Structures are given as structure tokens and as C-alpha cells.
Simulated assay, not measured.
Amino acid sequence: MSLVKKGVCTLLLCAISSVVAQTKIVTSNPILTDWYADPEMAIFENTYWLFPTFSGVTKKQDFIDIFSSNDLKQWTKYDKVVDPSNVKWAKDAVWAPSAIQKDSTYYIFFSANDIQTPESHWWDPKVHDSTEVGGIGVVRAKHPEGPYVDHIGKPLIGTVVNGAQPIDQSIFRDHDGTHYIMYGGWGHCNIGMLNDDFTALKPFADGSLLKEITPENYVEGPVMFYKDGHYYLMWSEGSWGRDSYRVAYGRAKSPLGPFDRIATILASNPEIATGAGHNSVLNVPGTDEWYILYHRRPIPNEHRNHRVVCIDRMYFNEDGTILPIIMTHTGVPPIPLENE
């Protein structure tokens, strides 16, 4: 069943959902015409759903828009499904959404407020404002487009652990139903297990809530997927505001690693775009077709925040290693999902 809006919603539906579907957008690469970044894609109810960061000035980046499509070409926009109206503590930047469905509920995990206090100084009154609130939050809804409500009323992870700023979270569901959360800025990556209702972290066997899995050259933006017996971890290196931004990866036999760095697979191309990074991965159900979602800086670039969301094909060698991504302006052809 598709949940994509086919026209202007009725007044009754709008009143119930508090969501307005905007005019459809038809694109190639980039797949969104406005400035967005940090894309994550999920398939819910036989529909593609795209969850990006609005790439604006930080103080004006306090909301999350989402998009839906039946074919990766025509997109419908849903405005501000997360903002200070439904997450009262998120008063500053909101970014890097990661979405997942569990049972009959949809969840969006997000970063907010860009907290800056290092772990070693958390209780030092000279550097720490005890009122500082931020980190990784989560909202929930009964439909992918919302309306969403704050799930726990506070950050799920709101302090610096193992040197990792609590940002850039990604959720991974393993074969046994375990839900892992990977996250981390400031050059450190942590992994934890979510409890059954996503209200807290669940301890590992040794009692710890988080384990550091930082690979070589890691900066931020982790994402995990599973293919042919291996867990792949991808991450961004370099500086998000510079041409050095790029994507590398490693793989392991366990979601806890170790993830030895294998190669850079996505980097600047002065003939196409620069600063390509903070990606997610799409596997079309029932196929061995894989795609990478990422943002990049168009040429010419208008501003540090001038980032756009793109999609390109991702190929694997016979040994499971990933070939370098070829950035394109054409993107991918329409890929309709098979009816359930």
C-alpha cells in the first residue's frame, strides 16, 4: 500500500495529520532541487522515503523535512515533521535523521543542539553550562509522514562518551531483530543496542551501554549494512565544509567490528562535484541492486551550505569489496517498487 499523497489533502485529513504534502518534484541528480544534505532512505509501505538535513544556516536549521516517491524520480515533500513544536528541547540545529519502522510505529532519530562540552569536562563549571541539553533524540508516528511526537521527551544520548559527540546517528536492524545505533562526531564512533521500545540503550553482556568501534580516519556519519555474510561500516572523512570530505568503508563478521579501513569509495570530482559524503545505502528489495545516497557540493558552489542530495549505483567486486562510486548528473533511472 502506498502512502504518497496524490493531490491536495482534504481539510479533514490535514487537521488530523498536521502534515501538508507539497507539489511533486521531478528530478535527476541531484534528486532534490533545494539545499539538503545527510540523506537517509528507507522503504516503508512499498514507498521510498527520504530523510535529509535541511542545509541552511545553523540557527535556521531547526527542522526536518521528508520526501516520498514511488520511483526515485517524482518526490512529494512533507514540511517540518520534526521541529521545536513537537520536540521542545530541540532549540538549535536539527540534522542527520535516521528512520526505521518497528511493529506498527515509525521512528526518526535525529541530532539536535550541537552540544560542545567534552566528556572530560562535563562537570567542570568553568567549561560546562549545566543547562546544556542536546544530543540524539527520537520521535514516533503511526504513519511515515507523521504527525510525529517526541518519544521520550529528552535526548536518548545526551553526553559525550568515548570522545564521541552525540551526533550523526544511524540505526541498523540485524537478522536476530537486534537494533543497533551507531553515531559519533569528533573522530570517534560508538555503537549501542536499543531496548525493545527505543526509550533507552540495552547493556551488552559486559554491562557496558556503548562500545567504541572507531576505524582509521573516521570523522563522522557512520552507516551499516549487511551483505553476503559481512557487516559493512561506511563513514565520512575530511571536513564537511571542504573538498576533502569523502566516504570510506570497512567490513567485519560482527556488527561490533573490528572494521579495518579498506578504501575510499566516494570523493570529490572536479568535473562533477566536490565534498561528497555523509551517505546511506539502498538495496532494492528482491534484487542485488545497491545504491548510494549522499550529498555533494555542486560546481559552481554558492555557499558553504550549498549541498545537494544525489543517488548513484554502487557495485561490488566478486570478493565483496566495493568499487569506487562514479558520480553522475543523470543519477538512476526510475525504479518502481513491486506491489506487495
Rank of each mutant, 00 (worst) to 15 (best):
2 S>T: 15
4 V>R: 14
13 L>E: 14
14 C>D: 07
22 Q>S: 11
24 K>H: 08
26 V>W: 02
36 Y>M: 06
40 E>A: 09
41 M>I: 15
42 A>G: 06
42 A>H: 10
44 F>K: 07
51 F>D: 05
53 T>W: 07
55 S>N: 15
60 K>P: 00
65 D>R: 09
66 I>Y: 08
69 S>T: 10
73 K>W: 07
74 Q>M: 11
75 W>V: 09
76 T>R: 14
83 D>L: 04
83 D>H: 12
86 N>K: 08
90 A>M: 13
90 A>W: 11
94 V>R: 03
96 A>L: 08
96 A>G: 09
102 K>S: 14
104 S>F: 06
106 Y>K: 11
107 Y>S: 10
107 Y>W: 10
108 I>D: 06
110 F>A: 11
112 A>K: 07
115 I>S: 08
121 H>M: 14
123 W>G: 00
133 V>L: 14
134 G>C: 11
138 V>M: 09
139 V>F: 03
140 R>D: 11
146 G>A: 09
153 G>M: 09
158 G>E: 07
162 N>W: 02
165 Q>A: 14
166 P>W: 03
167 I>L: 12
170 S>N: 13
170 S>M: 13
172 F>E: 01
173 R>N: 11
179 H>V: 13
184 G>M: 02
184 G>C: 07
189 C>E: 08
190 N>A: 05
191 I>D: 00
192 G>Y: 01
200 A>K: 10
201 L>S: 02
201 L>F: 06
205 A>I: 03
206 D>W: 07
210 L>T: 09
211 K>A: 03
220 E>D: 12
222 P>G: 03
226 Y>K: 13
228 D>A: 15
231 Y>W: 08
234 M>N: 00
237 E>N: 08
241 G>C: 09
247 V>F: 01
249 Y>S: 00
253 K>F: 10
255 P>E: 06
260 D>C: 05
262 I>G: 02
263 A>G: 04
264 T>K: 12
264 T>E: 13
269 N>E: 15
270 P>G: 07
272 I>V: 15
274 T>A: 10
277 G>S: 06
279 N>D: 10
280 S>V: 05
284 V>W: 07
285 P>I: 08
286 G>S: 07
288 D>M: 05
292 I>D: 01
294 Y>S: 00
298 P>L: 04
308 V>E: 00
309 V>Q: 01
318 E>W: 00
320 G>Q: 10
324 P>C: 11
326 I>F: 05
328 T>N: 05
334 P>N: 08
338 E>M: 10
